[in-house]
Computed example of a mutant assay.
Amino acid sequence: MSELNVEIDLAKCLTQHGFVLHMNEIFQFPGDFWNAVSVVDSGMQDLGWIAERRINITLVNLNKAKKKPNDGPNHGLK
């Protein structure tokens, strides 16, 4: 079985917008993709355009991401 192993460094995308852009870079969401966390959530439910049948995602620096404030226009990850 083919596998795709992905490591996402949350220290490199401390805002929701940064996270969405990073996820799009990694997974190459279809052309109708727009920058919103809800769209990433929907896209992750059906990754049919990816050839690998198994996808392993590792999140690193989660504690650093949790320290980013969740207020203001450039709010952090929840």
Results as ranks from 00 to 15, higher is better:
1 M>P: 03
1 M>T: 06
3 E>V: 13
4 L>K: 12
4 L>D: 05
6 V>I: 15
10 L>Q: 08
10 L>N: 03
13 C>R: 03
14 L>Q: 15
14 L>N: 06
17 H>S: 14
17 H>T: 12
17 H>K: 15
17 H>I: 14
20 V>F: 05
21 L>K: 15
21 L>E: 09
23 M>D: 01
23 M>T: 07
24 N>Q: 12
25 E>F: 05
26 I>E: 00
27 F>C: 04
29 F>L: 02
30 P>W: 00
30 P>D: 06
31 G>S: 10
31 G>C: 06
32 D>N: 11
32 D>I: 02
33 F>E: 00
34 W>L: 06
34 W>V: 06
35 N>D: 06
36 A>P: 00
37 V>L: 10
39 V>H: 07
40 V>L: 01
41 D>W: 08
44 M>L: 15
45 Q>E: 11
48 G>F: 02
50 I>A: 01
52 E>H: 15
54 R>P: 03
55 I>F: 07
56 N>A: 09
56 N>G: 11
57 I>V: 15
57 I>K: 05
59 L>S: 08
63 N>H: 03
66 K>F: 13
68 K>I: 09
68 K>W: 05
69 P>T: 07
69 P>R: 06
69 P>H: 10
70 N>L: 14
71 D>K: 13
71 D>C: 14
72 G>M: 03
72 G>I: 10
73 P>V: 04
75 H>Y: 13
77 L>K: 08
78 K>P: 11
78 K>E: 05
